[in-house]
């Protein structure tokens, strides 16, 4: 109750003050879109979806359709099973390179495992830290939080040589630990949860729970977690997308091994110096499917997460 009452004035856009000016000077949001607007947006949508649609079509054809002269193939053909069988080494065909090192199915499953662990840990650790930064008082809180924000701007690239050496020393190279452990928390997650908790939970509620004798952890479980559930959903989705799409580090740390994830698996689908692109595109399409489904199911939340995370920055 109190929470919504607190939030309402911020969330609600100000009502237009000068009603008579509304006809002349409507803000863009209140202006209905014209047909040209829809046309341009539809073209953008088409261009965005076309590469993956076409990869799906190509997963059902052989290489000759990829490189046919004239207009691109737009309808599916009969060769999906054939491509799948070659990719997963169920069959061998002359003219196709060996795909024994790809282990597509295993890589796919590995990625699912990594995503599950990374998302669960990120949600837990980031909401704990976000809660502490938003609502608890402790010495050094603000400098520590600025430090978290600062780390957002450090490219992972910089430590990649050292990170590999460390993983090597730990014996984690070519194991799932190498791609899981460093991703268990994220600066973005801490930042996002902190901003959300700060706005969503009034100090008074926490204060009164404290007065009733609740410990910090109880406040977290009984007040914070139920309130931030939508934000957890959003952060979980964005974390899942990033974890699934990991490429460079995964290529270095687990590429070609039994612990290979889907990114390096696609990389390794390009065998030899003239790869069979029907196989490459079959893998690419299948690797994109989980996220396309996720976007179709939870697109609104992903959009909201990106837009909210940005405005609060």
């Amino acid at each position: 109750m109190t929470a919504t009452a607190e939030k309402a004035p911020q969330a609600q856009p100000e009502p237009p003050k000068k009603q008579k000016a509304a006809l002349l000077g409507r803000s863009p949001q209140d202006t209905p879109a014209g047909w040209f607007n829809y046309l341009l947006l539809s073209i953008v949508l088409f261009l965005g979806a076309w590469p993956i649609y076409w990869a799906g079509i190509m997963s059902t054809w052989k290489d000759d359709k990829i490189y046919q002269a004239g207009a691109p193939q737009v309808t599916p053909g009969p060769f999906f099973k054939f491509n799948w069988d070659i990719m997963t080494v169920n069959i061998r065909e002359p003219g196709y390179p060996p795909y024994d090192n790809v282990r597509f199915v295993q890589s796919f499953v590995n990625s699912l495992i990594v995503v599950a662990v990374v998302v669960a840990a990120t949600l837990f650790f980031c909401s704990l830290a976000g809660f502490a930064f938003a609502k608890l008082r402790f010495r050094g809180r603000d400098p520590l939080f600025y430090f978290v924000v600062l780390t957002l701007t450090i490219p992972a690239q910089l430590g990649i040589v050292g990170a590999y050496q460390i993983m090597d020393t730990l014996g984690w190279v070519d194991t799932l630990l190498a791609v899981t452990v460093p991703a268990l928390v994220s600066a973005f997650g801490v930042f996002y949860m902190r901003q959300f908790i700060e706005d969503a939970i009034p100090d008074e509620i926490i204060e009164s729970a404290r007065v009733d004798g609740a410990s910090t952890f109880r406040v977290f479980w009984e007040i914070v977690v139920p309130t931030v559930r939508p934000a957890l959903g959003v952060l979980g989705l964005i974390t899942a997308v990033n974890a699934w799409n990991e490429y460079q580090w995964a290529l270095i740390a687990v590429g070609g091994s039994d612990a290979q994830t889907i990114g390096p698996a696609l990389h390794n689908l390009r065998v030899g110096n003239t790869p069979k692109n029907s196989i490459v595109l079959t893998g690419s399409f299948l690797a994109s499917l989980p996220l396309i489904v996720l976007l179709a199911v939870a697109g609104r939340q992903i959009v909201r997460g990106i837009m909210e995370g940005a405005v609060k920055a």
């Binding site: 953008v44 979806a49 590469p51 993956i52 997308v241 696609l266 990389h267 690419s284 996220l291 976007l295």
Partner: peptide, 13 residues
């Protein structure tokens, strides 16, 4: 949601 399709597509794919 539609304009996010490129963003969520794996970069390798």
């Amino acid at each position: 949601i539609g304009i996010l399709i490129p963003y969520i597509t794996p970069i390798v794919a």
